[in-house]
Write a protein that binds this DNA or RNA. Structure first.
Lengths: 288, 288
DNA sequence: GGTGTTGTTCATGAAAAACGAATAAAACAG
DNA sequence: CTGTTTTATTCGTTTTTCATGAACAACACC
């Protein structure tokens, strides 16, 4: 079954005559006659009753006519969705843990309210795995610590984060890595970019960093600092949302380690309607 | 856009590779490559990202993939409906007034309960107009007074009716048309077959029938007989359902005028799934 | 640096679609 | 009743589209 066959069938059914349908489709009647028989042969059903040189729809033909209209409607909808670029379908966005907790929730509700037909999904992972997800096609977009230099990716800066070091409350002021040398370090797993920032901070002071204990959530990270006297690097906005934040001492870092920019990244050429709608929403434009 | 193009697109999208899709479809890769480009050109959209000899679905491609699946599902449903013959769509049945009032209602609820997806419609009219409706394609089936000899139609007997003559209560017994000669006659309009039966009864007795007063409902027909002292021919089952039936006298007619068979008729070749389901239901078979 | 992949281009053969003329059968007009 | 017109269809031909295999360039993997 082909759509062109159905179009011919529909024209004949609606016009009630092969000749009229032929002129409507700018074809020759013999063509329609042949292709109609071919369709009937194909389906194994008689679509028309042929009596006295006149065609009338058979019951099976009436059924098919209904389906033909539905298929054309679907086709038109598909073409409109492709050309017009209305957000639709699945939209899988990846995010770092901190961004997912702080900045993402309000965006999610706005997006879902504006484009309810989009099936929005969020996956949280460290920055490195998010980039893999983008390249592997598992993610449509990702919020990662940036900037990211990657030929296959495009991106836009989204949020500014102030990064702070936390120690136990009794600890003295921290001006450089020397002041925390030897202390236990709590961080996310290897592929987390904040962890690499922390390593960079140690390197800048030429102080060796002890191998970090790998923690899976900011909540337990804070608990570890309080209980165990180690250090951790966290976004200030994240810290402000955690219960128990008064029990640690916050130390501001010097440039360039005190600032982190969260970027929205996507695969080059993958900026589709769903993602564009996200960006527009983020930048205050109401809709397309 | 053609379904064959979409099938190729779907295979490539699912396999993630032109070569694998080609072997799945038993085609040659160059073929798929060309037809894919043709589809993209057709739609004016890039369906795949071509980077380093590898294909990945673009956002537009993901949208189209969803539509392609829906179209194939619709196609499969249509073919199943045509071959398997599941009742669906519109089903327009015509009926005489009396049958519509007495026998049709229980059938309608049974049919609608068994095949809720069928859009069932009933049109009431005199037998003659019903036959026109069948031939003109406005009706899928009709319940008419039979038997009907018509080359274009097929039919089955459905209900047996006893036809009785009613007069005012004070009237004496009626053995032949002579006993009611000269009385006012109430009947439906010309194309009603019961009216022709009555005419036949008069002719058999060689009694001229006065031109009938045309009435549009059995209810008012009964009222006229009560009030005006005329006669009318009605099915006994119809009469039994009418309020005020005690106020008329019922006279049984001799053969062959006392029996009428209501036939279910349809256009030859038009016995589709909807109608077959109706017949099966009528004959006690639960379903297909 | 070979050695297989991959997707694409191109020329060619095969299949399908569209055409035009001819035919038969019914509808219509005189 | 008899031409005339209109109808769907069949058949042979042309045109378009589809499918193929060989040649190629870009990449991945030893």
């Amino acid at each position: 079954m082909e759509l062109s066959q159905l179009r011919i069938f529909q024209a004949v059914a609606e016009e009630g005559s092969i000749t009229r349908a032929a002129s409507r489709l700018h074809r020759v009647p013999s063509n329609l006659s042949t292709r109609l028989k071919q369709l009937e042969e194909n389906l194994g059903v008689e679509l028309f009753l042929r009596e006295r040189q006149r065609l009338t729809l058979s019951p099976a033909g009436k059924v098919l006519l209904g389906y033909a209209e539905r298929m054309f409607a679907l086709q038109a909808e598909a073409e409109a969705a492709l050309r017009g670029g209305e957000p639709a379908g699945d939209f899988v966005i990846g995010s770092m843990f901190s961004t997912a907790a702080i900045h993402l929730p309000p965006m999610l509700v706005r997006y879902h309210r504006t484009w309810p037909s989009v099936n929005l999904q969020v996956q949280t992972a460290p920055s490195g795995e998010l980039l893999d997800g983008l390249l592997g096609g598992r993610l449509d977009a990702a919020l990662v610590d940036g900037p990211v230099e990657f030929a296959e990716l495009d991106g836009l800066p989204m949020f500014e984060e102030e990064m702070v070091l936390i120690t136990e409350a009794s600890h003295g002021p921290v001006r450089s890595a020397e002041d925390v040398a030897g202390l236990e370090v709590y961080a996310f797993r290897q592929s987390c970019s904040y962890r690499r920032r922390l390593e960079g901070w140690f390197v800048a002071s030429r102080v060796p960093m002890s191998p970090p204990m790998e923690i899976e959530s900011y909540h337990s990270m804070l608990a570890c600092v309080i209980a165990g006297g180690g250090i951790a690097l966290v976004p200030r906005s994240m810290l402000n949302s955690l219960p128990g934040r008064e029990e640690v001492r916050v130390h501001e870092l010097g440039a360039p380690f005190d600032r982190a920019t969260t970027w929205l990244m996507w695969r080059k050429g993958m900026l589709g309607a769903n993602l564009r709608a996200w960006i527009d929403l983020q930048q205050g434009r109401s809709d397309a």
